[in-house]
Amino acid sequence: MSTRLSDDARWNAIRGATGLLYLFLLLPLFIVVLISFNPTQYAAFPPEGLSLTWYQKFFASERLLDALVSSFVVAAGSALVAGAVGLISAIGFVRRDFQYKSVLSSLLFLPMLISPVVIGVALTAFLTDVGMQKNYLFLILGHSTLVLPYVFVTVRAQLFGFDRSIEEAALTLGANELETFVEVTLPSIMPGLAAGMLLAFVISFGEFTATQFWVQPDTVTAPIEIYTMVRTSLTPEINAMATVLMIITVVIPLLLDVALGKNLILKSA
């Protein structure tokens, strides 16, 4: 039967199926944004009007804004820590040879594969036993561990395509090793590092599963507040807060990306 279809018809069917899949991927998120402007207490399709009621409620809530600030502090801290550790270890793994390299590098991917519940539980038990308080430092250490693989893998990919002869040129021309690293190496692997750190920020910002074991009342993050609201009251404030979170983790990085013209987001894939 398919042989009777023309190439065009077959290709159109493939294109149509792809279009439907995009609908499946993106429609639910679009609905969150749409319903966030709905004035009533209950979701309604189509929305019964356009209003900013739930945004006003959200921005009037000190508790929710505090959570947003907490998320920001933790995400920025984790992106910096994971950025530094990820950059240095990616250089070690790409440029040097040593035994068991591939087994050891899979150790750096492990946090992506193990359920965040297990990582959350294990780190809580371990760090509280060595006497550590659940504070921002605790959260940043935990989140850095969770996001380190993403920085490692993006920097590593960038280093594989790096032409070392430009470093040699700089050294020959009289730059010392530190100058060469800061002025030659770092700028050319910057896109990979920036993409990895941006991704680390975004993942840390939205992390819930492991974080639920790591927070204290004064360090509650935005995803924890959303979960609490979903489990207890299902208030429409969730939609407003979710939209604000998506602006922070998707719209702003996207605009930055377009403005800088670096295609960082695609690089993170």
Binding site: L25, L29, A43, E207, I226, V230, I265
Partner: peptide, 19 residues
């Protein structure tokens, strides 16, 4: 557009299905 949903906090992506 395939990569972008990955940047949306997981909790929001699951919550969206409640709506």
């Amino acid at each position: 557009f395939v990569v972008l949903p990955f940047w949306v906090p997981l909790i929001i992506r699951y919550y969206a299905w409640i709506l």
